[in-house]
Design a protein around this nucleic acid. Structure first.
Lengths: 214, 214
DNA sequence: ATTAAAATGTGAATAAATTGACATGAATAT
DNA sequence: ATATTCATGTCAATTTATTCACATTTTAAT
């Protein structure tokens, strides 16, 4: 059991926001920051920020605060941003292409090697320098290119089948955009992006905004 | 103060998942479901499901469970899915186009009327029947077409400026895909989709998966 | 040097969320 | 009809998350 694994997922999900603001601070040339200042930026309380960071060790210094670069680097390590992974996308529609184009991807250490689709009209096309290939070549490609991350940007009907193929090919992590829950073994990790759920929440907020003024 | 507003956001964020599974159950012709069966589907505990639903009233019946269609309809009402809103997208790149193409959108009651961009090479093109227009015509379009939802799918550098324009034009809600926090007045609601944060979490899981086996 | 201000790390207190347990009433079987 | 099973709604208990408060240490000012 490693130390990090006992930190609650609630805490972990706040780390990317800290990391993002620290990136901005570095760009601005700020070298030092207090939990109170970070609180003003992120909206989390200063106390919570200190508690969160202390789960991983004492990165700060009394009377001084936190060194921006150090904290940024430590959070990057905790989040695994120093590792590099090869990825593929199944589903070369707009969403798949958007992801292949997405620059933020490489900041997280992921490199999209190829997109896959069944539609003959897109097979062979290139997004930047990333080729769209036939689904039939997916398994071989994964095995030959040390691909560890599989992305799913297809309709939900195909998602589980693709996940199964990914698992069989030895993939370690799946980034799933299809609005369905995938079944995979314990040794494969899944992170879902739920666009429709996000939209429903927006709808809820809108409804409540109106009702509270009615 | 309306009743719903005191229900915690933690509960609200689970509702879309219930709604999604209920939609599937309707498609399968299932008319009745217990909290225990819903638990097996969603992964939440039966007790939690009963607690969640009771925040909004007694939808179930002892000894029977919940009527699938009734519950589905009630959750839809709570989430505001019965309301209809016009939306526009600023940023007609792949992501903006993916959203304009996205069918799940209309299930939530949102209709994308137009996309906007500054790039002359895409202005005038159509995604399905949705035209891409010049940014300069955005404010007028919003005011003339009763647009209440603004979507942002541009790089983060432009996001705040677009949000400001949206607010000035009288928009009520913003669905933001840019990786930055937007400042808007209290009477405008924001729902963020944080693709990069999601990716960082995937990275964290991957790192921890490996360490726990090392 | 000395003092005052700043700000962490942390244990305790509080608040929020989840789970457990069961009385009650409905549905089903006999 | 009666008995048995089922399953909700809800209160209480537990667990988890957040906030408070402050001793301690460092920095910065005089």
């Amino acid at each position: 059991m490693n130390r990090d694994s006992q930190v609650s997922i609630t805490v972990i999900r706040r780390l990317p926001k800290y990391h993002r603001y620290l990136t901005e601070l570095i760009e601005k040339g700020v070298s030092r920051i207090s939990s109170q200042e970070l609180s003003a930026l992120t909206g989390f309380t200063a106390s919570q920020i200190r508690q969160d960071l202390n789960n991983f060790g004492g990165f700060g210094q009394q009377g001084y605060g936190y060194n921006v670069e150090d904290l940024h680097r430590e959070l990057g390590k905790i989040l695994g941003l120093d590792a590099k992974y090869n990825a593929v996308v199944v589903g070369a529609g707009n969403l798949g292409q958007a992801i292949a184009n997405y620059k933020g991807f490489e900041d997280a250490g992921f490199k999209v090697l190829s997109l896959f689709d069944r539609n003959p009209r897109v097979i062979g096309l290139r997004i930047r320098d990333i080729e769209i290939r036939d689904m039939d070549t997916l398994v071989d490609f994964i095995e030959e290119n040390n691909v560890e991350i599989g992305i799913i940007t297809t309709p939900k009907e195909n998602a589980q089948e693709i996940a199964d193929t990914y698992v069989k090919s030895g993939i370690k992590g799946i980034w799933n955009f299809a609005p369905t829950d995938l079944l995979v073994p314990d040794n494969v990790v899944i992170e879902n992006v739920r666009l429709n759920e996000s939209l429903f929440i927006l709808s809820y907020f809108l409804k409540n905004l109106e009702e509270s003024r009615a």
